[in-house]
Simulated scan of single mutants.
Amino acid sequence: MEAKFSNGTFIWILQIAKFDISQDISFPAFLTGALIYLFSVLCNGIILTLIVTQRSLHKPMFYIMFSVPLADLLGITTILPRLLIDIVTQSNVVYYPTCVLQGFILHLYGGSVYFILAAMAFDRYIAICKPLRYHTIMTPFTVGGVIALAWGLDFALITVLFALQARLPKCKTFIVNVYCDNMSLLQLSCAGDITVNNIYGLVITGFMQVVGVGVQLYSYVQILKTCLTHSQSDAKIKALNTCSAQIITFLLFEIVSTTVILSYRFQNISPNTQKLCGIMAFTVPPVVNPIIYGMKTKDIRNAFTIVFKKIKGTLT
């Protein structure tokens, strides 16, 4: 993959923006970031391992949920290690193919959140509103199809987004953000009409919001109606427990994303704060989500307790 200048030459190495911090705090910043990354990898890895190894979690709900920690690991691994290396080495250079790959995966992660949570909301809707038909509807084929649709649609949309960006000639070598994304790659161009890029970017952003929010809103409204009309209070508690983690996860992602957008709208915010807000969308959810699912999902808590007791028993 090459970045083509308007004069026909090619560039491979790009300069990338960096945090304006002194050498005195570069190591503490690196250590803090490394601990955050290791914590995220550990927690998400535990969730993934439990879903794979514990038979009690071999259910449609958890097969779909498997994509959440997987996507979180993909997102935080794509952005944080390289950023931490730049903080320590102060090199702040990136190869163009690596930059494109990072941008592609980060956009893939962002889009996957909407589609995966929509798939989980659909599963909860069937489980709570149509309990007698749940196993008939949520067959292995249906579950596999829902997961493939979520990832496949996301992959197709992001592929077209980056294909539109790649067609433009490049004549700049500075990435204005501390990580690579579609917008920063577009800003390397100095010729060509980017109207199509801007329109398509807005269209897929709106589409993801409509599908993600629409499916979840419909599902949870129907679930709420079922709870309110159900005579047994334990059914209401079960519904709230199984849905609360997904709702909190979605609200967290929306709040963090909105904070990132607003940080670039106010001129009095320092560049370092804007850059820090920019990476929040790829670091905060991967750190907090496994805690949410561990606390709010009873089956995961029970599976973890069983495994922990087994490990403890073998060590004593």
Rank of each mutant, 00 (worst) to 15 (best):
P81F: 03
L57F: 14
L42R: 14
L38P: 06
G214C: 03
G45C: 15
I51R: 06
L14G: 00
A303S: 14
L108W: 12
F266H: 01
I47N: 13
D193I: 00
Q90N: 13
F304G: 08
V215C: 01
I46P: 15
C99F: 04
L224S: 05
I306C: 15
L83H: 00
K312D: 06
H135P: 14
H230V: 04
T142C: 11
I128Q: 03
L185E: 00
A245F: 01
N197A: 12
L185C: 08
P131W: 01
T258I: 15
S219I: 06
L315D: 13
I199H: 05
T297L: 11
K225G: 01
C129P: 01
F10S: 00
K130V: 07
L31Q: 05
T205Y: 06
A166S: 03
C129T: 07
I306W: 07
Y134E: 08
S40L: 00
K130L: 08
P28A: 03
I79K: 01
V113I: 14
T205R: 07
I306E: 10
N92S: 08
S26E: 10
L186Q: 04
V94L: 14
A121E: 10
F30N: 04
M208Q: 05
L153S: 14
L70A: 13
I105V: 08
L252Q: 01
K170F: 03
A166C: 08
G313V: 12
I175K: 06
L50W: 05
I300P: 00
A34T: 14
Q216W: 12
M208F: 07
T77V: 05
V178A: 11
S219T: 10
G201P: 02
A235G: 09
L149A: 12
G192I: 10
K170W: 03
I16F: 04
T139V: 09
N44C: 15
T89D: 08
R167I: 11
C180I: 01
T283P: 00
N302P: 00
L276I: 13
W151C: 04
L73P: 08
F104E: 06
F308T: 13
D20K: 09
T316E: 09
V178M: 03
M1A: 05
V221A: 04
K298V: 05
I204K: 07
V256E: 03
T77H: 11
I261H: 10
I79R: 00
A156S: 09
Y293M: 02
Q232Y: 06
A191M: 15
L117P: 04
Q23F: 15
P169I: 15
